[in-house]
């Protein structure tokens, strides 16, 4: 008798709502300290960047001959660069550009890659062959050369930032398409996909409602890796001078002043802040990605 009453009281204590796979993943992620700290760091970076106009009153573009290459001081927290512009201000505004380029490229790449990969994987046959050959074609473009040429062609005609985002995205969706396709190929063999067709679901419905939710974890993890990659790509291109137009500060633009031996050797305040910003942001994104991967993998138990 005693035993049964204990059991009943335990039953009542159980949570009523059943936990979805997403809720389980969320719980796992929240327990991952490194990932949470990284996420917090990224949020702070994002807030600082996007609130830049309210945090500093310095003009990012105005050249100030009287204040060239000043070391860090009370007035200029991180000093000024060779044109007399405040490094701290430029760092905040630069974060904005890096994050915007990173996020929009990631979203575009994920969107294109998923649509093309899912269609190729689900329909198979000639559609698959054609889409995948197109993917191969795009993947063979020499990335840097292409970006440089396109940027030169569109220079001044269109918004430089927009061109950069579109060009990077168009050249990068190939790998995502391949991954999504392979995932869909494996997933569509499951009996529940046939069951979904057998209750009268159209191909569109099968892909969007049944297949994509099951490959979403892969897409999300891929997205975080891409986000990091895109920031690196943007910085790299800007460093070379082919990325974001020179008048807009970005972390990569700021780094390019380290080209000069004088700056590199004796004025570290000009290039160390953006370098650290890039490094830590990428690191944090990768930790978050790793955390997501763990959380979304049903086999990992923590």
């Amino acid at each position: 008798m005693q035993v049964t009453t204990v059991k009943e009281s335990q039953l009542k204590l159980k949570p009523v709502k059943s936990t979805s796979p997403w809720a389980l993943a969320r719980r796992k992620f929240l327990r991952n300290k490194l990932a949470m700290a990284s996420l917090l760091f990224l949020i702070i970076v994002a807030i600082l960047s996007f609130l830049a106009p309210y945090l500093t009153t310095q003009d990012i573009a105005r050249i100030n001959i009287g204040e060239m290459s000043l070391a860090p001081s009370g007035e200029h927290w991180l000093g000024t660069d060779k044109s007399g512009r405040d490094v701290f201000t430029r760092l905040l505004y630069g974060g904005r550009i890096s994050l915007i380029v990173g996020i929009s490229c990631t979203l575009l790449v994920i969107l294109m890659g998923t649509v093309i990969g899912a269609m190729a994987g689900y329909f198979g046959g000639i559609i698959d062959s054609m889409l995948m050959r197109f993917t191969d074609f795009v993947l063979t473009f020499p990335f840097t050369v292409f970006v440089i040429v396109l940027n030169a062609v569109f220079f001044g005609k269109l918004n430089g930032l927009l061109v950069l985002i579109l060009v990077i995205s168009f050249l990068s969706w190939g790998s995502v398409a391949r991954i999504v396709r392979s995932k869909i190929l494996a997933e569509k063999e499951n009996e529940y996909i046939m069951a979904a067709i057998s209750i009268g679901c159209s191909p569109f419905k099968v892909i969007v409602k049944h297949l994509l939710p099951n490959v979403l974890s892969t897409i999300i993890v891929q997205g975080t890796i891409l986000f990091a990659t895109m920031i690196v790509v943007e910085s790299g291109l800007s460093y070379l001078g082919f990325g974001v137009p020179a008048e807009i500060p970005s972390w990569g633009n700021m780094l390019s002043s380290a080209n000069e031996p004088d700056v590199l050797q004796s004025k570290p305040w000009i290039w160390i802040p953006p370098a650290l910003a890039i490094t830590f942001t990428i690191l944090a994104i990768n930790f978050v990605g790793e955390g997501l991967k763990d959380a979304l993998n049903p086999r990992s138990r923590r």
Binding site: S20, N190, Y192, S198, G200, C201, S202, N214
Partner: peptide
């Protein structure tokens, strides 16, 4: 295919062998 989709599930339906894999794991 579209016409067949109207019949599948409404006029003819099917039960599969493997109940463990015939339901989509991510939906209630």
């Amino acid at each position: 295919d579209t016409e067949m989709n109207r019949i599948r599930g409404r006029d003819i339906s099917m039960i599969f062998q493997e109940p463990m894999t015939s339901l989509n794991p991510v939906f209630t």
